[in-house]
Design a protein around this nucleic acid. Sequence first.
DNA 1: GTGGTCTAGACCACA
DNA 2: GTGGTCTAGACCACG
Lengths: 130, 130, 130, 130
Amino acid sequence: MFIQLKFDSDIPIYEQLKNELLFGIAKGQLKPGDRLPSVRQLASDIGINLHTVNKAYKQLEEEGFLRIHRQQGAIVSPDGPKKADHQYKETLKELLRPIIAEATLRQMSKKDFDQLIQSIFEELGGIDYE
Amino acid sequence: MFIQLKFDSDIPIYEQLKNELLFGIAKGQLKPGDRLPSVRQLASDIGINLHTVNKAYKQLEEEGFLRIHRQQGAIVSPDGPKKADHQYKETLKELLRPIIAEATLRQMSKKDFDQLIQSIFEELGGIDYE
Amino acid sequence: MFIQLKFDSDIPIYEQLKNELLFGIAKGQLKPGDRLPSVRQLASDIGINLHTVNKAYKQLEEEGFLRIHRQQGAIVSPDGPKKADHQYKETLKELLRPIIAEATLRQMSKKDFDQLIQSIFEELGGIDYE
Amino acid sequence: MFIQLKFDSDIPIYEQLKNELLFGIAKGQLKPGDRLPSVRQLASDIGINLHTVNKAYKQLEEEGFLRIHRQQGAIVSPDGPKKADHQYKETLKELLRPIIAEATLRQMSKKDFDQLIQSIFEELGGIDYE
DNA sequence: GTGGTCTAGACCACA
DNA sequence: GTGGTCTAGACCACG
């Protein structure tokens, strides 16, 4: 697990951390049932505040990606989160709408956009043990 | 011009406003050269503070989507913003990565995702008279 | 006399007009005693408001560059403005300080800067009848 | 950090503040990586509104001179702004043209002008411990 | 404690 | 009537 954070970014650290963890899970580096480092451990590894890691874990638990046990720490949820439902897809659409609007105004064609999407799916598809 | 804002959203109002305007431009409801409502006008229409509208306008100008004249107000830039370059595409990719990661974990296939993208492009492509 | 205005600029029109006129005088296109177009004439030529031209003329008169006669209109002052005194040079220095500060931060050397100054003086030096 | 503002100037306060900060950086009083006072701190020190300071900081960040962190406040950018390119030099030239035109009309020679430039570069070059 | 956001209301410059 | 500037004061997110 390599966690890469940008401390200059305007995206909150806990948000970046969530993203990195999600990406690790989606990519298969973290598998259902795998144990995550303890809050304390990860915080010291990355050099960030303990509360920040906690917040990321908590939210990922709420969203169904992790399970947190008092003693054993956090593990990747074996069940995964709630499947995409209509509600989720609507939210997703609202999220993507302005992104795509801007991309088209910058003269990206749907084809360009699709290629970019494709490249991300490929990143995820590549199985990666370490 | 229909602007729909969610005041209880965690997305800042000025950001939502930017998105709505961008969407309007991308959709062709607002054409290059078209005049936007004055900051005061729009602010009172939507029921928000004029500074908030101003912030949205200013940022859109900064990004090349609008031109702001002291007297004539804001118009949709005839030239449009900078075209998508490598830098932009990289940023876009970083933006999309966590979104796609989460979608796949919610068991959306690439096909599902593509359909959603497709539907947004259709919204934009649809000619819209008013 | 070619007056070039940028209506998109954040520099007020009357200010741009003053600059253009000053440049014309400094360059020798307008000589001491020469008559300027009437306010009405110039305004309609350039396509701007009459008050705007008036403001430019008035200020140039106040600063000693023009003389305005009720009947004959405006002429380039035969005496010219007050010579640069200590006070003026101090103001000039304060004006140039931030400009130079920024230039150096953008890694322009004094030599680069001098070249730029030189090129402007050359523009002015070239005698130009038309 | 000595910030000197003229409240009766026609130059906006946030602009003056930007200039003072730029000058401080160019002079080496503020070095890359140095932390600036918090917006509240500086605002109360100078006796202006925090939003005014904020505006100055934001614009300096936009132009690449500062980096602003949500928690740590603003620091002088280690990388500095974009280097002077052709575009910048053209803008600079347009800025200087009317200044020089007026100076020559006030009978300043190029030599006089160069001396003034020289004196400003000396101010910047002077090493300054505090 | 830091900046980010939002509101409210004032005065000014410009054309 | 338009945006630009400035002030004042509030609440929030982040770490």
